[in-house]
Design a binder for these strands. Structure first.
Lengths: 339, 339
DNA sequence: CGAGTCTGCTCAATCGATGGAGCAACAATT
DNA sequence: AATTGTTGCTCCATCGATTGAGCAGACTCG
């Protein structure tokens, strides 16, 4: 009877026996609908006390099996190595919990197969929603979910088959580019185009940001060099190598840059340091993303911070409304006036 | 029969009917032990094909309810806002998956109540292990787990009642302090003690690091000013305020500092920028933790990187060995030679 | 030819929580 | 006294997967 090392967990049947009552009474009391099920308040109190004493915890597996709703919500996220995704995850967890949902989060390291595998696993756990964040192929996840009758939603990168919440990449990028162009002109003493670096040309965000980048140049009467748009991928090394490759070419590397994420910025900074472009040689920068140390330590940089709280507020609005259309919500990012 | 919007998910019974066989045959085939249960390979193949066609996914709730082992492993983590915890989570997920475990991670934002709440929830989901990372009160979590017959383990901050894996804070801190003292002496032209800032005086890591800090001073024949040991908490603002308060005091702020985490470093950097201690006025720094941008952008700083892969290797070794003693494993951190 | 073995499958109990249906016991009403 | 209503519970089927036990039929061998 007494709790041993390898004991079985306390169940409602154990409590029922201890309380000299039935399992259904115990169940009713512990999940709060004992009033509806007309259990006397004295018995209720006795059961509650016993449960506490015995350290009882529901077996969610059993409970969820029986119930119709699981209250589980899944999120797929590419990486935990930057502030943007970190705050997405943290905010998501908090907001899910506030709504009585249990968040399950999985990091897929930008691996398309792992994304699908993780989604499949979440479906096994009977999640009610899957939020695909920055997924390489959101529509595949949506299809998988749809086949299982589970709702899904895209965050950060849009898909065509489920509602998507993303930053307003075009407007954000145009404004960021404008600001960097102004800084660059002030520094050089003349107008000159920027280099665009980072991201994948095939993803919506990158192409929208390129569109904004080009628009801002146009508006300021500056020609863009197509050859200076390097959507070389997200990994730091890719940005570093791309710059290094450019250096040996004719014209070299422009000393004004639009960097497409903090991850790419890491590579850019590495290149800057290694190639000795520091101090007065330092390039004029803009970064579509935010990092506190960069904001503090780098003086010639403009950063846009994606509005994570607003994005997730929108995500949960959609979830609460239960919408499934392929709508696209674009959240304006915030310009950080570096301290 | 056809899949509707609000359909029920496909079960082994559906598949059994479609295949004209029994549910137990389907179950045996799909969970791989059909050889043991002597199911013919033709039937097995037919079932497998059907399952694929129907997009079948096990109901984990049902499966786990029946099985003895859940293969779930929980991790509690304080924040996602720095590289250290980010890489802990990412590595943990990967390693858990490699071992056939399903990781459930929850961020508790350094809130002791949320920690307990999260642990309780994980117990409801029948996790087999809980890893408390940087928990404010690891022993409380251990007690809760023990009452439910669940193993637990502490990471980053040790507890007395469960095995703990942490960095070798004393040795790491002593070496870091030594390096910073050398840099500081080189800069000042004379020996001078450092300021210690960040962390909680009550936590093991902070007190061990202070011990290492003091030891390094002693070894170099430098007196430590007890008044310059500011374990003011982890939040950036706390560090910033502590420095600001010190500035108005007699002696002011020493221009050599040991910062106890990147989070505190954020506050320190803010103070440095706001109070104008930049350029040649910039302090000589050391930080017990690592961040790529700081490493790249700050030139007078030494950083230690906690060895996350080694720490998690040790965690999973303990899990695989099934040990429950309150042993303490200390992993030497790595010194980063800034690029 | 009968006993024993092996193959390929099915039956039914089980895990723990839930909730519809129903049953005593008693009070209130006609 | 008979009917109706209410209160406070209990019984039992159910969710979907798993697994020990068992049952035909085919095959083997003395």
């Amino acid at each position: 009877m007494n709790r041993d090392k390898r004991q079985k967990r306390t169940t409602i049947y154990d409590l029922a026996e201890l309380a000299g009552t039935s399992a259904s009474a115990v169940s009713a009391v512990l999940n709060g609908n004992w009033k509806k099920r007309r259990i006397g308040s004295q018995l209720a109190e006795r059961i509650t006390k016993l449960a506490e004493e015995q350290g009882y915890a529901v077996n969610m597996q059993a409970s969820l099996l029986r119930r119709e709703k699981s209250k589980l919500i899944g999120m797929i996220v590419p990486k935990y190595d930057n502030r943007y995704f970190g705050s997405i995850v943290e905010t998501f967890e908090t907001m899910a919990r506030e709504r009585g949902l249990f968040p399950i989060i999985t990091c897929t390291r930008r691996d398309p197969e792992l994304e699908m595998e993780a989604a499949r696993e979440m479906l096994s756990y009977q999640v009610e929603w899957i939020v695909s964040t920055g997924a390489t192929d959101p529509d595949r996840v949506t299809d998988l979910c749809a086949a299982a009758g589970v709702r899904s939603l895209n965050l950060d990168l849009p898909g065509s088959k489920a509602p998507s919440v993303i930053s307003d990449n075009f407007a954000g990028s145009r404004e960021l580019t404008r600001r960097v162009l102004v800084n660059y002109e002030r520094k050089l003493g003349r107008k000159s185009p920027l280099l665009f670096i980072g991201g994948r040309g095939s993803d919506h965000n990158t192409s929208e940001r390129i569109r904004g980048f080009v628009a801002a140049h146009l508006e300021m009467g500056i020609d863009v060099d197509g050859h200076h748009i390097l959507a070389c991928g997200y990994a730091p090394e890719k940005a570093e190598h791309a710059l290094e490759a450019l250096r040996t070419e004719e014209g070299g590397v422009p000393m004004g840059m639009f960097v497409n994420s903090t991850i790419s910025l890491e590579g850019v900074m590495r290149w800057i340091t290694r190639s000795g472009h520091t101090g007065p040689m330092a390039p004029t920068l803009g970064c579509f993303d935010w990092d506190p140390f960069v904001a503090l330590l780098c003086d010639d940089i403009e950063m846009v911070r994606q509005d994570v709280p607003a994005m997730l507020a929108s995500v949960f609005e959609i979830i609460e409304a239960g919408s499934t259309t392929g709508s696209l919500v674009q959240i304006p990012p915030v310009f950080v006036t570096s301290c």
